[in-house]
Amino acid sequence: MTEESTPQSEQRRRSRSFGEVAEMYDAARLPYPDQLFDDVLAFAGPQGAPALEIGAGTGKAALAFAARGVPLTCIEPDPRMAELLSRKCADLPEATVTVTVGEFETWHPDRRYGLLYAAQAWHWIDPEVRWARAREALLCPGGAIALFWSDWHVVDAALRGGLVAAHDRHFAETFPDEFVGSRTGGPASWVRQELAADGGFEDLEQRTYTSVHERSTAGFMDLLSSHSAYRIMPGGKREALFAEVEPLVAAHGDTVRLETTTRLFLARTGP
């Protein structure tokens, strides 16, 4: 197996695909629930600031925490995403958000944090080191970790069936289930298993938030285009798939109704 075809290299390629469309990604991705941010800060308590975000992207989570008065350090490996985040934070009070281009696995801060969180990003981090590094290098004793993801599910069964059929024709492997397939629970199983197996975290909690959003055909196509599974498709195959998907949605009243499920995982390091 060549380096280019290893699972690790594929994972890295997918994780770096978002910067190609940073502006579209920022506009297309749905917001996280307001209640989630309040719940994270309540769990973290007074020592939760300043906080550290891993894989900050364009700041979908960072700006929500900053709006609640939390000073942040944001680590983002893609300089294009980091540059957009920096621009979005330019009008905030000085030192509210510090953006650093870097890799979680090798970054060395000059302090520890009371809260470490990752929004739609923790699965990109090397599983061999992510938990131990969070505990041993970045979090204070008793510090909180908060990890959250959103999955989007097409509500209408008839539209979903048409989308599944189109995806089956164009994806060589399993397509991104959170959009058009069955509800799978996302990261629920592996996050809990890995946290428990690590042995260095306690007070594990899981919370779920649901909401419904509507997207136009163009908005739905942009949302698909912001997903790594579509970003790494060969251009011709992606165009062929989208050429089927777009008229399906347009024929459905030019609207897609999406049920959004956001799962939050909380834990603390030991004293």
Rank of each mutant, 00 (worst) to 15 (best):
R238K: 15
T6W: 07
G59S: 13
G253W: 07
E4W: 03
Q11E: 12
G181P: 02
W107K: 03
D203L: 09
E246Y: 00
T96V: 11
G186T: 02
F43D: 01
E20T: 07
L147T: 02
I145C: 06
A66I: 00
A188W: 03
V256N: 04
L85I: 12
G59T: 14
T261D: 03
V99Q: 10
T208H: 09
P93K: 01
R130V: 10
Y25F: 15
E244A: 01
G185E: 08
A146H: 08
R160T: 05
E244N: 03
D110T: 13
F179N: 10
W124F: 02
P71Y: 13
L92E: 10
V245G: 06
A172L: 08
L223A: 00
G181L: 04
G19R: 03
E76G: 07
P77E: 05
D34M: 05
F179T: 00
A166E: 06
V155C: 13
A119P: 10
S5T: 15
V99H: 08
A82K: 02
I145N: 00
A22D: 04
H123R: 06
R183V: 12
L223C: 12
G55K: 10
A158D: 15
Q35A: 15
Q47Y: 01
G253P: 07
F242G: 04
R192T: 14
G114F: 06
L266S: 08
H167V: 01
A250V: 03
Q11K: 14
E239L: 09
L92Y: 04
G102D: 04
